[in-house]
Design a protein around this nucleic acid. Structure first.
Lengths: 204, 204
DNA sequence: GGACACTGAATGAACAGCCACTCAGTTCCG
DNA sequence: CGGAACTGAGTGGCTGTTCATTCAGTGTCC
């Protein structure tokens, strides 16, 4: 190890602890719900003292925000990148849908936080909605509009509504998957949604 | 009025107070969120003392449950009744969708409770899901299956998934309507959803 | 090399505020 | 008068947040 840590001057192990706390919080929130989760539980799960949590986060609420921000940022960056290589609007929507369910399906705890905990108050909803969800809906919508311009999709449809429909359908798949006792793969549901959706919006 | 109340033997004004508390709770929950709502606030809004709330409800949580139970019961009874007069599966789904958004669109506070507050914890979600949502999904699903048998809808589609898609789309319309700053009518969105949905699932 | 001073990350006990729920007492009504 | 309905101040338990204290690691000076 030696003086390796002098490479990151001020905060040697910092990134790890922050990360550990976030990971712990996702698990705790998912299992107990945001409001029933105690900061002390998160600290224990992360292997740090209660006070340490407050060296990295201003409040319990900020932890929830950070979880959302990090994940959403990652997802959108990831998405934009994939979009660059695809030009067909139908394929683009297909990719978006798959990425959506892939991501949630890969981490059940995170999915619970996204599908349930983040929805639990208008206050949160408005904040989060303003931030990431809105942007995500816009991505779907503009992709759809491209398809309309290209004559692939029915021109008379309201793109904003169409975007909500696709999002809502995917969202319901995710929520149902979490609540279901049965264990099945989430990602493949995307194809069934797309089948109906694309069939419904494609210009003849 | 006089001795009219002796018609309901044991609890004269009971229904009124119970009703008042429920109504108050809907407003308070919608404005502050379930967890931030104080029982004292509900009591004040209902014009009763704190303790009175506990004469009618075992706990704060039971109030939330009652709101859900009453509304859902009413909605489903109402729905079944309307279904009797309609035989065409497409018309049935259209009616379900309209009733869904009509009901939520008619009472914003109740809509907030349903779309946001009831979704805020896996615990609630599981309980509620088990109860009413599941039954509602089943109603959609079996209506769709009738349509499949009749050759109206594509036979190769998984009815369970189709039901989730329709529900998810409607649900998203409602949630978006609540969160939106813009004021618009919710009910008409049903037609736009149905246009795409029916177009997507109809047998050619 | 080693003694000393310094730094700031980490700790966890203690605090302070909050609020669901209780219950002893009051009011109301027949 | 008696019982039922109602009241609302008080209580107990809980938990987010703070902060005095610790101490491993680092730099400085002789």
């Amino acid at each position: 190890m030696r003086s390796a840590r002098s490479l990151s001057p001020d905060r040697p192990i910092v990134a790890d602890k922050r990360q550990a706390i976030l990971r712990a919080a996702i698990r705790i929130f998912a299992h107990n719900g945001y409001f029933s989760s105690k900061v002390a539980d998160i600290a224990r799960e992360a292997g740090v003292a209660d006070g340490t949590v407050y060296l990295y986060f201003k409040s319990k609420e900020e932890i929830l925000h950070s979880i959302f921000d990090r994940s959403m940022e990652e997802a959108i960056a990831d998405g934009r990148q994939r979009m660059e290589k695809i030009s067909d609007p139908r394929e683009r929507l297909r990719t978006i849908a798959h990425m959506h369910l892939d991501r949630l399906g890969a981490n059940r705890d995170l999915a619970v936080v996204f599908q349930v905990e983040l929805r639990g108050s208008t206050k949160f909803m408005e904040e989060f909605s303003a931030a990431g969800f809105a942007e995500y809906l816009k991505l779907i919508r503009s992709t759809f509009e491209d398809g309309q311009s290209a004559g692939v999709f029915r021109a008379e449809l309201n793109a904003k509504v169409v975007a909500k429909i696709l999002f809502g359908a995917l969202d319901e798949m995710a929520t149902n998957w979490i609540l279901s006792k049965r264990r099945y793969k989430l990602a493949p549901m995307a194809d069934q949604v797309l089948d109906i959706f694309l069939n419904g919006v494609t210009a003849k």
